[in-house]
Design a binder for these strands. Structure first.
Lengths: 207, 207
DNA sequence: TGTACATCAGTGAACGCGCGTTCACTGATGTAC
DNA sequence: TGTACATCAGTGAACGCGCGTTCACTGATGTAC
């Protein structure tokens, strides 16, 4: 053996981490193998020492980004007082900072549409990471049965992902800011359509 | 003049319409000029008789898809009784049918992430179409001042877009269905986090 | 009504280029003595 | 401690291919007479 055993793994990890930045920024088809290796400070020739195909790296990079987001959420959950954690997490997600830094942000607004066009294994991989995110967020919702908390969390995540996607797509003007702001209120359940028949049907179950 | 004046325009339109299907299905980078022309029953050579560049067609195709969605919403708004229109529109959007037919569905879940990586003119074009959608949806929300209605509509659209993006990305299993279902409740404002301090701060303004 | 002509939408070969992938090699590094 | 060797992570030229774009052409069609 010529290099210490960890060297290879460190390089592998460096490629994956940098690729996860480049792919979130440019989309799964927006950067080449040459470009991805350059991000890690390498040339393209050695790529297949580490990965079986470009698609394999894409999968690893998305998984890495998702894990990073789960870790960030767990970290936020531990830092805040119990009653503010749900709101704090939403505010963190729906911030101009997150909108303007796709590269270091959540993989879902950046890459989920691409994953939707990928194969079943890529979709299953994303699904399991998304379930983790739902679980972490659901635990921050007090006074709800687990099933209801999961439902609220799922809806909040959908709102957050959609808000980031749209706020990025329209640029950085007034509309973009208002999408973020409204997304926060909607995800927290603070913007409500005035209940009509819906009240009798469902809304009163809990209140 | 050799062909009737409308012939050229009809071909142009046929290319744009078919491209809007192909691009929603495959992403803005997922189909070539050869492929796009084939969808219109043509060969690639004539492409530049109609468009200055591939990017120009992509722009036209996205605008076409957005207009189609606005028209669909206006149509739904006219077909339903006043009190059900908001819910009916959301149910139409967050249906398995829409999830499974990206090709003929809303351009936002399919292509907004790509637009976010495009130039300012593409983003401005999308923004103006999105404003139309917000306007149409806001008008279906009764008993609210225009500004509040617009805000509710904006949040609902973000929730709808995020729900479709995620439900497509995780495949068509149980989780996917529950994302659609939960998206409906969230977009309608029927899933609510139990109000804590948020109640005093904001929620009571209207009720 | 029939024929010769002009137009131009559409064709398909060709362009240079960047893509993902392969492969013979190189040279930095850990080990043996 | 110093030297010779073996390993293998990383290099860069090369592959066939599909891309966006260009261009000389063709042939279907409306017009002139």
């Amino acid at each position: 053996m010529r290099y210490v055993e960890s060297h290879r793994r460190q390089t592998y990890r460096r490629i994956v981490e940098n690729a996860s930045l480049g792919l979130r920024q440019n989309g799964t088809k927006g950067i080449s193998v040459v470009g991805l290796m350059k991000l890690a400070g390498l040339t393209h020739g050695g790529f297949y020492n580490h990965f079986g195909s470009r698609a394999e790296l894409v999968g690893e990079a998305i998984a890495f980004a998702m894990d990073q987001m789960v870790a960030r959420w767990k970290n936020l959950a531990n830092k805040k007082a119990n009653g503010e954690r749900f709101e704090a997490l939403i505010a963190d997600y729906l911030s101009p900072r997150h909108r303007d830094n796709a590269k270091q942000g959540c993989a879902l607004p950046a890459l989920a549409a691409d994953v939707a066009r990928s194969g079943p294994s890529e979709r299953r991989a994303l699904a399991s990471k998304l379930e983790e995110m739902i679980e972490v967020l659901a635990e921050l919702i007090p006074d709800e049965a687990p099933q209801e908390a999961r439902q609220i969390a799922t809806g909040a995540i959908a709102t957050m992902v959609g808000s980031i996607v749209l706020s990025r797509a329209v640029g950085t003007g007034k509309l973009s800011d208002s999408i973020l702001e409204t997304g926060r209120l909607t995800a927290e359940g603070r913007v409500r359509k005035p209940p009509r028949r819906a009240v009798e049907a469902i809304d009163c179950k809990k209140s």
